[in-house]
Design a protein around this nucleic acid. Structure first.
Lengths: 218, 218
DNA sequence: TAGATTGTTAATCGATTAACAATC
DNA sequence: TAGATTGTTAATCGATTAACAATC
């Protein structure tokens, strides 16, 4: 038994592997080497092999990895080989957008409930899902065995919604609001606040004094 | 002159610091210590001090950091103290959502042009911005001195749009499409594909065999 | 067999943290 | 002055990469 704690960096690469593998599968590629994956992803092949090796022996020496088999295995590792119900709070444009991904999603994660606090939103239908009032949240989370919550409400309401998710027994939160949320230790929280990506992107713009030497230190 | 190459990890923390500092400033807090920031962000205070020290001496021994001054400094480092024009390709729900952030944005990054390939989208108005056809992209990028492009088109069109952005002279891309994009080395690309966050979140769910020991190795 | 490629160990590299002199 | 907190060096920890025996 390999009880080694898997690092976050490794886990965050798994979905990327899955993405390339799916592309390869769509192009009916049967087999792929860590070398080839490395080229596609700009990653060191040794790193890819090591990442996968944390979870088992999925390749064949001299041959490479069977694409479909590896897809299956990574889906198992990520636990998306089983249905995972997801709730979404905040039926704005962003909420709408995320619900649409449902249609194209090839894995078993599905948004199965949408909540909003605003009376104007309640009852409208997004992708066959009726928007429910926040009061229904605790009941529906339990009833549908929802384990992940997505937050797409404005920043000032985000902490409040997070609390309600936690209270209702959710295990993980994907937060799109530009706010720093406090949750109990056992709750996993991933931030998807795009303003962060955008700001860090700006850093790398060439300036009069570009990123490398824009320091004010002399 | 500190020519040390700043690591990506450091740069990605800067927007987070900025976020807390803005919150503190809104609450009229004048001064903050690395200790306090560390508690708020679950980061080691030494790390925060070291991150900031890469760029200069912004604090005062025995006192801490002046909130407003540090905000200014980080904005300078990230180059968001000057206006940065951003283009967005893909006027779907996600594109709409991102345009709305414009209104609340406190920094100088602004989406100033929106493009879409679909005739049904062209000409409609989002937040006072008329959606333009893709053909206009090269001209408008140059004319408005746009340096960053956001991609919110479907995955299968994403590479094509990226190529057009690069061709038009853009320096950085924020990609929301669940696709792996190839761009020249000098172009910076940040992926904001939320399906990745969601999949890696699933890994941490407690299973029958939870994340720590779900390995198939024996 | 010869060539390719895995899984894994060891070496390297880089990032985080502890510790503390300087100083407000 | 005494207490607090920075900026920075040194120590630690962890992640990436190189190298190679095993083997298809």
């Amino acid at each position: 038994m390999k009880q080694t704690k898997i690092s976050e960096a490794v886990v965050r690469r798994l979905p990327i592997y899955l993405q390339v593998l799916n592309e390869l599968h769509n192009r009916e590629v049967q087999t792929v080497s860590s070398q080839e994956l490395g080229v596609k992803l700009d990653l060191n092949p040794a790193q890819i092999r090591k990442d996968l090796a944390y979870f088992g022996e999925f390749g064949r020496k001299g041959i490479g990895y069977d694409v479909l088999y590896l897809i299956e295995k990574i889906r198992q590792i990520l636990k998306v080989d089983q249905p995972i119900n997801v709730a979404l709070a905040g039926a704005g444009n962003l909420g709408h957008a995320l619900c649409n991904y449902n249609k194209y999603s090839k894995d078993n994660m599905k948004i199965t409930a949408v909540f909003d606090a605003h009376p104007s939103k309640i009852g409208i239908s997004i992708n066959n899902l009726q928007v429910l009032p926040m009061e229904e949240l605790p009941r529906v989370i339990v009833q549908q065995n929802i384990r992940i919550g997505i937050i797409t409400v404005p920043a000032f309401e985000a902490q409040n919604v997070a609390n309600q998710f936690v209270e209702a027994g959710i295990e993980g939160i994907l937060n799109f609001a530009p706010a720093i949320l406090r949750v109990p230790e056992h709750i996993r929280i991933h931030n998807a606040d795009f303003t962060r990506d955008l700001l860090s992107l700006a850093y790398y713009l060439a300036g009069e004094g570009d990123a490398a030497n824009e320091s004010t230190v002399d």
